[in-house]
């Protein structure tokens, strides 16, 4: 992701979304022309069940200032239960990140359906604005720079 020419901090947000709900919700935001900040890079996956935790770490490694994971509402999963499996993993994984001192304000989870273009817009705007206020995620970029051995 290229730095903004003016040198003003532009948050880098990576969104891991499922193909059937949130990706379509983002499509709907598009067809409805609902504007939101251009800081988000969406990675399309078939289902939230497919999103493994290493992807979140990888996201921070490549310099994300915030990460969103989003999929179908419970009960609406295209694959019936992928999101339930994902949710259970997230409950524990969040705790691990918290223990390790990750900034939990930079990891977001949402249910956004294909019909919720507005919600997609609001959630993304909110995340970008919040991240903008917090500034770059220096803690993790520091980790990524340091060579220990």
């Amino acid at each position: 992701m290229s730095a903004h020419p003016t040198g003003v901090f532009e948050p880098k947000v990576i969104a891991y979304v499922c193909n059937w709900c949130t990706y379509l919700g983002a499509d709907l935001a598009g067809t409805s022309r609902l504007e939101y900040p251009a800081n988000v890079r969406i990675v399309r996956l078939p289902c939230t069940g497919r999103i493994d935790f290493n992807l979140l770490i990888k996201g921070f490694e490549v310099g994300a200032d915030a990460i969103l994971v989003s999929g179908c509402h419970p009960g609406d999963c295209h694959y019936t239960s992928g999101n339930f499996h994902a949710r259970r993993r997230w409950i524990l994984f969040r705790q691990l990140l918290d223990t390790m001192g990750f900034d939990m304000n930079r990891i977001h989870f949402a249910w956004i359906s294909a019909a919720e273009g507005k919600k997609f817009q609001h959630v993304l705007t909110d995340i970008v604005e919040q991240t903008r206020r917090m500034g770059p995620y220096a803690a993790y970029s520091k980790i990524c720079e340091e060579v220990s051995c």
Binding site: G30, T31, L34
Partner: peptide, 14 residues
């Protein structure tokens, strides 16, 4: 389109 030109205004950013 849906994820970019239709949801952003600033041409440089888009």
């Amino acid at each position: 389109r849906e994820h970019c030109s239709w949801v952003h205004q600033d041409k440089a950013k888009a």
